[in-house]
Nucleic acid binder design. Structure first.
Length: 396
DNA sequence: ATGTAC
C-alpha cells in the first residue's frame, strides 16, 4: 500500500524560534507613511535574530528592505544596508565673495566624469585623498552618481540654535557645499558578491563582510571630500574639511550586535544634515536619539511617490524650466529630464514635517536651515524619456 | 543606486 504523502513528509524545520521584534515608526499620525514601508518593517522584524526595528519619519518602501530605518540584530544581513554602502551627506564650508546662481551653475565641473589618475594627474583635488584609495577602487572616483545623489551650493538660512551653529562656525548667510553621495560601484560589488551566494540571508563571515564594508564606507567619505574639492577648485573657493559628514547606509557594531542603517543617520550626539529636496531647504540638526530609535535620525525628506509615479505626475504638472529654476530661486543642473521629474520636490514629503516629527519624538534639535543656490545632479542627458528622443530624431 | 543586459 502506497505511503500517503503526509506520512513521508518530515516535520518542518523552520519552526518559529522567537516572537517578531518590536517595530516603532517615529512619525506623527498626520505624516504620510506608505503602508508598504510599514509592511517591510514588519518583515524585517520577523528575521532571525532581530531585536528592534525603528522607522524614521522619512520611511518609504525600498527594493528589498525599507528605506529610512535602523534595524538592530544579532545576525548581520547585508541586504538590509543595500548596495550603496557608505552613502552619506557631508557639509563643507564654502567661502565665496559673491554667489549668483546663474553664473555659478555654469562653472560646476563635470562630476559625471571620473578623475583619471593619468589624464587628470595634475588635478589639485587629488590632494584630499592623501594617496589613500580604499580597496584600490578607482572606478567612478570623484563622481556624484545618480538617483537622489547631489552636490549643492547652499546658503545658511534661519539659524535655530545659535550657540550650536556658532560651534560649527556657521552663521546666517554663510555658504556651504552639501555633498550626498556613496561608494558608487564599490558597495554594489560588495553586496553582489554576498547576494550571489547567500541571497537575502545572513553574512556567514561577518568579519569578512565588515572588512569590505568598512572600505566602502571610507571610500564614500573620501569621495565626498574629493567632490567638494573639485567644486571648490572650479568655483574659486578653498577646499576644506567637512563640518558634518554622516553615513546613512552602513552596519555599526554595537555591543556585539549589528545595527543596520538604511537611509537612517547616526543620531547619538551627532550633527546631521537632513536633506530636503531639489528646490526646498534642508535642515542641519543635532541628533540625540536613544535606544528606542536605535540611536538614529532621518536622512532626508523621504520619497512620497515612486520614481515611476513622480515621472508620470511630474510631466503633467511641471515644465522642465520650472524644475530647473526652483521657487527658492536656485538652479538645478540636470541634463537628464527623466531624473529631473523623478527628483522633483513634489515627489518627496515636506521636510518641515519630517523635522517636526524628529523634534516631537525627541530625536533631534534643529540647528539651522540651508537654502539651495545651485544643485548639481548630472550633466548627462543620456537617459532622456523615449518621447524626447523621438522628438530629437524628428528635428534632424 | 548601481552596472549591465535588453
Amino acid at each position: 500500500m502506497p505511503v500517503r504523502p503526509e506520512e513521508s513528509t518530515p516535520l518542518p524545520q523552520q519552526l518559529p524560534t522567537q516572537e517578531s521584534a518590536p517595530v516603532t515608526v517615529f512619525a506623527s499620525p498626520g505624516s504620510w507613511i506608505e503602508s508598504d514601508a510599514v509592511v517591510q518593517c514588519h518583515q524585517v522584524a520577523a528575521l532571525d535574530g532581530m531585536s528592534r526595528v525603528a522607522g524614521m519619519p522619512d520611511l518609504h518602501p525600498g527594493k528589498a528592505a525599507p528605506i529610512g530605518a535602523a534595524m538592530l540584530s544579532s545576525v548581520l544581513y547585508p541586504h538590509l544596508v543595500g548596495s550603496d554602502i557608505g552613502c552619506g551627506i557631508a557639509v563643507f564650508p564654502f567661502p565665496l565673495k559673491r554667489a549668483v546662481p546663474e553664473r555659478l551653475a555654469g562653472r560646476f565641473p563635470d562630476l559625471d566624469r571620473a578623475l583619471d589618475p593619468v589624464r587628470d594627474a595634475d588635478d589639485p583635488a587629488w590632494a584630499v585623498l592623501d594617496g589613500d584609495i580604499p580597496a584600490g577602487h578607482l572606478d567612478g572616483v570623484g563622481t556624484v552618481g545618480r538617483g537622489n545623489h547631489f552636490v549643492e551650493l547652499a546658503r545658511v538660512g534661519t539659524v535655530l540654535a545659535p550657540d550650536h551653529a556658532d560651534r560649527l562656525g556657521l552663521a546666517e548667510g554663510d555658504l556651504v557645499l552639501i555633498v550626498h553621495s556613496g561608494s558608487r560601484g564599490l558597495g554594489e560589488r560588495i553586496l553582489r558578491a554576498h547576494t550571489e551566494r547567500h541571497g537575502a540571508g545572513p553574512a556567514p563571515d561577518p568579519a569578512g563582510y565588515l572588512a569590505a564594508h568598512d572600505a566602502a564606507v571610507r571610500w564614500g567619505a573620501l569621495n565626498r571630500r574629493l567632490l567638494a574639492a573639485r567644486v571648490a577648485h572650479a568655483l574659486g573657493s578653498a577646499p576644506a574639511a567637512p563640518i558634518v559628514d554622516q553615513c546613512h547606509n552602513l552596519v555599526e557594531v554595537r555591543a556585539g550586535r549589528y545595527l543596520h542603517r538604511k537611509g537612517a543617520a547616526p543620531g547619538d550626539g551627532r550633527d546631521v544634515l537632513v536633506a530636503g529636496t531639489r528646490g526646498t531647504a534642508s535642515y542641519l540638526v543635532h541628533g540625540h536619539a536613544g535606544a528606542a530609535a536605535n540611536h538614529s535620525v532621518a536622512h532626508g525628506a523621504g520619497r512620497k511617490m515612486s520614481r515611476a509615479d513622480a515621472l508620470r505626475r511630474g510631466r503633467a504638472k511641471h515644465t522642465v524650466e520650472q524644475l530647473r529654476r526652483t521657487p527658492v530661486g536656485s538652479i538645478v543642473v540636470c541634463g537628464d529630464r527623466q531624473l529631473l521629474f523623478e527628483e522633483a520636490p513634489g515627489a518627496y514629503k515636506r521636510i518641515e514635517q519630517v523635522i517636526a516629527d524628529l523634534v516631537a519624538h525627541g530625536l533631534a534639535t534643529p540647528v539651522a536651515t540651508t537654502v539651495p543656490l545651485v544643485t548639481y545632479k548630472t550633466l548627462d542627458a543620456a537617459a532622456r524619456p523615449a518621447r524626447d528622443r523621438r522628438r530629437a530624431r524628428g528635428r534632424r
